[in-house]
Amino acid sequence: MLTGLDTGYEGKFDFPRWRGPPTTPWMLATVPRTGSTWLSHGLWATGCLGAPLEYLNFEAGGPYTFANGAPSLQQELWRSLLARRTSPNGVFGVKCFPAQLEALVAANPPLLDDVLALLLPRGGPKRIVYLVRRDRDAHAASYARATLSGVWRKEQERDGAAPAYSADAVDTAMRWIDAQAAAWEAMFRDLAVTPLRLCYEDALADPEGTVAEVAHYLGIAIDPAAAIPVPSIEKQTRDPAWSPRTGRASAG
């Protein structure tokens, strides 16, 4: 977790307390390095679409590391988040990676049951926005570079040598991305869910249109008066050595 920096998980960014279950729960399904943090903050800033952050991220370095290995605390935290992160119109969003749900299978099945009952109810509406990145080469390069450097956000960048381009790391990242994408597609098929599919490149080109598309999919009207300040997300510095074309050439 970043220190000395507002990430959005701080209590000062909570909505007024919501009582009862959210009326419009939804999931932002994605994999790392798709621009999902940037998009989630843009949706959150409307004040009408919940605050779809990684509320099931208990791994080391994540926002809720303190709950790692503590199933009862994780369930208590989840219940608290439902009350604090549901927007005043009843919308609750959560961003998920496949690995986070898979971790709950082994570590906390009761919490997984609660999450799925809310987001994927039997016989009820299943609202999933699925974000991908069209440029697979750039996606894999970004994923590999972040994995090697440990730098996942602009604010983590420090002076010093960046990791050298690694074709092996990029190939590994591509396999990880493909495996996670396959996991989402399998879930969509098994649950007969038709998600709203978005591409990062399209969202970047038309942020307002993307927000409107998500709101329409969820059946939510955006009230301009409900807009709220949220932490900004800066684009990371581009390293020419890690551009797919340059990297492959330099790697021989």
Rank of each mutant, 00 (worst) to 15 (best):
Thr7Asn: 11
Gly8Ala: 11
Lys12Met: 15
Asp14Pro: 03
Asp14Lys: 07
Asp14Ala: 15
Phe15Pro: 00
Pro16Trp: 05
Arg17Glu: 11
Thr23Val: 10
Thr30Glu: 01
Val31Phe: 00
Arg33Pro: 03
Thr34Trp: 03
Thr34Glu: 01
Leu39Trp: 02
Gly42Ile: 06
Gly47Asp: 03
Ala51Ser: 14
Ala51Thr: 09
Pro52Leu: 04
Glu59Ser: 12
Ala60Pro: 00
Gly62Ile: 05
Gly62Pro: 02
Gly62Gln: 05
Pro63Lys: 03
Thr65Trp: 11
Phe66Lys: 14
Ala70Arg: 15
Leu77His: 09
Arg79Val: 08
Arg79Cys: 06
Leu81Arg: 14
Ala83Phe: 08
Arg85Ser: 04
Thr86Ile: 09
Thr86Arg: 00
Thr86Cys: 07
Gly90Met: 03
Phe92Trp: 07
Lys95Phe: 02
Ala103Lys: 15
Ala103Asp: 07
Val105Phe: 08
Val105Asp: 07
Ala106Lys: 14
Ala107Gln: 15
Asn108Leu: 08
Leu112Phe: 04
Ala117Glu: 12
Gly124Arg: 05
Lys126Ser: 12
Ile128Asn: 00
Val129His: 01
Leu131Lys: 06
Arg133Cys: 01
Arg134Val: 08
Arg136Phe: 14
Arg136Val: 14
Arg136Ile: 12
Ser142Leu: 10
Ser142Ile: 09
Ala144His: 04
Ala144Leu: 10
Val151Gln: 12
Glu155Leu: 11
Gln156Pro: 01
Asp159Pro: 13
Ala161Cys: 09
Ala162Pro: 11
Ala162Phe: 05
Ala164Cys: 05
Tyr165Ile: 01
Asp171Ser: 14
Thr172Ile: 07
Thr172Gln: 13
Met174His: 09
Trp176Gly: 03
Gln180Asn: 09
Trp184Pro: 01
Met187Lys: 02
Ala192Tyr: 01
Arg197Asp: 02
Cys199Asp: 14
Tyr200Phe: 11
Gly209Ala: 06
Ala212Phe: 01
Ala215Ser: 00
His216Glu: 12
Pro224His: 00
Pro229Ile: 14
Pro229Glu: 13
Val230Ile: 11
Ser232Arg: 15
Gln236Ser: 10
Gln236Trp: 02
Arg238Glu: 14
Pro240Gly: 03
Ala241Phe: 01
Trp242Ala: 07
Ser243Asp: 15
Pro244Ala: 14
